[in-house]
C-alpha cells in the first residue's frame, strides 16, 4: 500500500463524512430544538435530488438545480412541519417514529407516482468535471473535493448562525429550555417551522450534491438515513459538534474498513474468500463501532444538555 492510496482513501472517508454531516446536522438540530425524531429526513434528501435533477434537465444548469433543491426541500419540510410534524411534538417517540415512517411510505410512492420508476439523470457541472493531481502522484476528482469544501462551508455557516445571530440565539434557547422561550414571547411555532425547513434544506442540498455522483432514484434516502442516525447517536443526539465529529468518524471508519479489512484477511485466507468475508465484516463495522461507543458512553460522545 502506498502513501498516495492511503491519502486518497482518507479523502474519500472525509467526503463521505461531510455528506453524512449535512444529513446529521438537520436531524440533530430538529431533535435538539423540538425533541422530535424524524425518520422522513431521508425523504427530504430524495426530494432535493429529484428537484435538482428535474430543474437541471429543464434549464441545463446544475447550479439552478442546486438552488431549486434547497428551495424544494425547504418547502417540503415546511409543509410537512405545518401539516403533520407540529402535531407530534408533545407525543412520545413511538408516535413520532411511526408517523414519520408513514411519511416515508408516502414520499417514496408519491415520488414514484410523479417521476416514474426509472432513475433520473443528473450530471456534474462542467466546472467541476475531471480530476486534479494530488501530492504523491495520484489524482482526485474535483467534484469530491468540492463536496468536502461545501460541507466545511456549511459547517462554518451553521456555527456562525447558531452562535452569532438572533435565530441562533433562539435555537440555543430552545435547546436548553423549551418552555421558557415560549414564555419569553418568542413565536415558537414559527421558530419550529424555520428550524425544520433549515434541516430539510441541508438534507436537500446533500441529496442534490450526491445525486450527481450516484443515481437519482426512489429509496435513495434510506441507507443514508440509517447512517445519519448512527452518526448522531455516536455524536450525542442534539449536538452539532457531535454530529460533525460522528460523521467524520463514521465516514473514515466505513471507507477504511472496506479498503483495509479484505487486505488484512488476505494475509490469512485465499483472496476470493478474503474479499467476501472482509466485505461482510466491513459492512458491519460502523454498527460495531456504534455499539462499543454506546456501551461505554450510553449518551454518545457529546451528550446534549437534555434529551
Amino acid at each position: 500500500m502506498t502513501l498516495a492510496l492511503a491519502l486518497e482513501q482518507l479523502l474519500n472517508g472525509l467526503q463521505l463524512g461531510v455528506m453524512l454531516f449535512l444529513m446529521a446536522a438537520g436531524l440533530t438540530l430538529i431533535f435538539g430544538v423540538m425533541g422530535l425524531i424524524n425518520l422522513a429526513h431521508g425523504s427530504l434528501y430524495m426530494v432535493g435530488a429529484f428537484a435538482c435533477a428535474t430543474v437541471a434537465a429543464w434549464t441545463g444548469s446544475f447550479w439552478i438545480g442546486l438552488v431549486a433543491s434547497l428551495a424544494a426541500a425547504a418547502a417540503a419540510g415546511a409543509i410537512v412541519e405545518l401539516v403533520v410534524i407540529r402535531r407530534l411534538y408533545d407525543r412520545d417517540h413511538l408516535d413520532q417514529v411511526l408517523a414519520t415512517f408513514a411519511l416515508i411510505l408516502m414520499f417514496s410512492e408519491g415520488t414514484r407516482w410523479l417521476f416514474g420508476s426509472f432513475p433520473l439523470y443528473l450530471d456534474i457541472p462542467p466546472l467541476l468535471q475531471g480530476a486534479v493531481a494530488l501530492p504523491g502522484g495520484t489524482e482526485y476528482p474535483v467534484y469530491r473535493l468540492a463536496i468536502i469544501l461545501a460541507g466545511a462551508i456549511v459547517a462554518f455557516g451553521l456555527y456562525l448562525l447558531i452562535s452569532r445571530t438572533r435565530l441562533g440565539m433562539r435555537i440555543r434557547a430552545g435547546e436548553s429550555d423549551r418552555e421558557m422561550i415560549g414564555a419569553l414571547g418568542v413565536d415558537i411555532r414559527t421558530l419550529y417551522t424555520v428550524v425544520f425547513a433549515l434541516g430539510a434544506a441541508l438534507a436537500g442540498l446533500a441529496g442534490a450534491m450526491v445525486g450527481a455522483l450516484q443515481s437519482v432514484q426512489v429509496g435513495m434516502g434510506e441507507p443514508v438515513l440509517i447512517l445519519a442516525f448512527v452518526v448522531i447517536v455516536i455524536g450525542g443526539i442534539g449536538s452539532i459538534k457531535g454530529a460533525l465529529l460522528g460523521a467524520l468518524l463514521v465516514g473514515v471508519t466505513d471507507t477504511m474498513g472496506r479498503f483495509l479489512l479484505p487486505k488484512l484477511l488476505a494475509l490469512f485466507v485465499a483472496p476470493a474468500q478474503a474479499g467476501m468475508i472482509g466485505g461482510a465484516a466491513a459492512s458491519m463495522l460502523i454498527y460495531i463501532v456504534m455499539a462499543v461507543i454506546l456501551a461505554v458512553k450510553p449518551r454518545g460522545l457529546f451528550p446534549a444538555a437534555h434529551a
Partner: peptide
C-alpha cells in the same frame, strides 16, 4: 447493551443491532 441507554438512543441502538444482523445475513 441496549438497555443501558434509553429513549431515542434505545430506538437507534436496537435498529443498529438489527442492521448488523441484516448485513451479516446478506454477506455470509
Amino acid at each position: 447493551i441496549s438497555l443501558r441507554t434509553s429513549g431515542v438512543y434505545f430506538i437507534m441502538i436496537t435498529l443498529a443491532f438489527a442492521q448488523m444482523v441484516y448485513y451479516f445475513a446478506i454477506s455470509w
